[in-house]
Design a protein around this nucleic acid. Structure first.
Lengths: 260, 260
DNA sequence: TAGTGGTCTAGACCACAGA
DNA sequence: CTGTGGTCTAGACCACTAG
């Protein structure tokens, strides 16, 4: 869209010019701010693709590196995201995720007016390693199911999930349809229900395979969330690791003091 | 330390060479992996400063940009951090933070064997804005205390905190010593106790003033955590925003299903 | 096939930190 | 004062996406 390019470059050049007089901020920050303005005022719409980097940097009048630095910053803030070799896109508003509710992906995404989808990438039986054997209190020679799923919000892939389960507890699990709610399958077929969990989260970057599966470049910032889920008897039901494209979510938590 | 430089460059060049034969991964990823190895095997120790970028990129044999890209990646993963214009440092292991416990900074940092410190940067009375007036249900013309504090783990500045409180509820608050636990002051002096809170968190980047206060460059990745704290009667006791240098922490959460 | 984003290079200047 | 990290430029090639 040549019209969009014009609007962007006109505004960004304007801001750069103003800044030259008064400001001592680096160009990439000024460019970042200008883009942030354009996104906020919806000159560039949600989910819209930006013009190509070369068109942008030439019409704006900064080097391609500087432009990319500004865009990477907006990516780190969750305002933009990239799809590998496909370009830059304005991110939709973050969906609220409450890990404390044990609420499923389809539930909370749907409730907020978005369309969820889950897709199984791979399912197999893998040997336990040091880490998983400890979590499951499983014997060293045992095996675990490993299910890898990719999940979408409004058809944008936002998270890859690795789920480990004990085949002794869930025999023939892989014969079921795992494209929906896993906890529903565990409950209906096996009568097992997760009642509590230990959650660990920290920001990181998406590495190799996961980056590819989410169609992003391998250095994309991410949010790592892992959960050890247990049933009422405190036996581990599943262990899962979620690699979130972090511009997609915002975490919420309702805290109540229980201890004194 | 010329010895450190030698060890680093020897290993990284070795890995790059090996990769040239077999691998198709980009150089900056190979360099990243090599540094990650060196950190994991403690060839470079926790908290140690890396040799200068120029020394590194020359002896390793990649351009300075490529080297910086690798280092920035490690920063985004929390393995390295920068102090503005002071260089790159290996980050200490993340401290575990459990926002759900309402436990104070000094408590959880101390319990994990680290030394916490809090420092008031600024304290003032500010007019309410649209956002804070809504949170406090405060009248439009009212004022709020705004306290800005910087907190350290082992003398490394890791978080800047903005705390809003209602002066009608806590008169003369600013006359107290606020370099310790604020909740202790609220409880002992005013008999007010926070019993529950709503927490929102998402990764972002540190902007202007906060970046300066943490001695990092303005594009450093961060974790934003805000909390609306309430007492038993559901009246807001304080509203605070925390800007974390995110390599410093790892979030933990114990979840129990309450509904259904 | 044309043009894109991803990667990479070899410079340069500046403001600031540390000696 | 010296050397550092922070910023910025003007190129280049490649693998891939989109048409």
């Amino acid at each position: 869209m040549s019209k969009l390019l014009n609007e962007i470059s006109r505004y960004v050049r304007q801001v750069l010019e103003d800044a030259e007089i008064s400001n001592k901020a680096p160009s990439y920050l000024i460019v970042r701010n200008a883009f942030a303005d354009l996104i906020a005022s919806e000159v560039i719409s949600r989910d819209e693709k930006l013009p190509s980097e070369r068109l942008l940097h030439e019409t704006i009048g900064v080097s391609r590196s500087t432009l990319r630095e500004a865009l990477a910053l907006l990516e780190a803030e969750g305002l933009l995201h990239r799809m590998d070799r496909r370009g830059w896109f304005v991110s939709a508003a973050r969906v609220e995720y409450e890990p404390a509710t044990l609420e499923g992906f389809h539930t909370f995404v749907g409730r907020q007016g978005h369309i969820p989808r889950t897709e199984v990438l791979d399912q197999q039986l893998v040997p336990v390693n040091e880490h998983t054997s400890q979590i499951f209190s499983a014997p060293r020679r045992g095996k675990l199911y490993l299910i890898k799923r990719r999940r979408y919000i409004d058809e944008r892939p936002v998270v890859v999930e690795h789920i480990y389960l004990d085949p002794r507890r869930f025999p023939k699990l892989l014969e079921h349809n795992l494209n929906g709610s896993l906890s529903a399958v565990l409950e209906k077929t096996y009568g097992v229900r997760t009642t509590n969990a230990d959650v660990t989260m920290y920001p990181s970057v998406l590495s190799g395979a996961v980056a590819t599966q989410l169609h992003v470049s391998p250095s994309t910032p991410s949010l790592y969330i892992s959960r050890v889920c247990r049933s009422k008897d405190q036996v581990v039901t599943e262990y899962n690791e979620n690699f979130w494209h972090y511009s997609a979510i915002k975490l919420k938590l309702a805290v109540v003091r229980t201890r004194d």
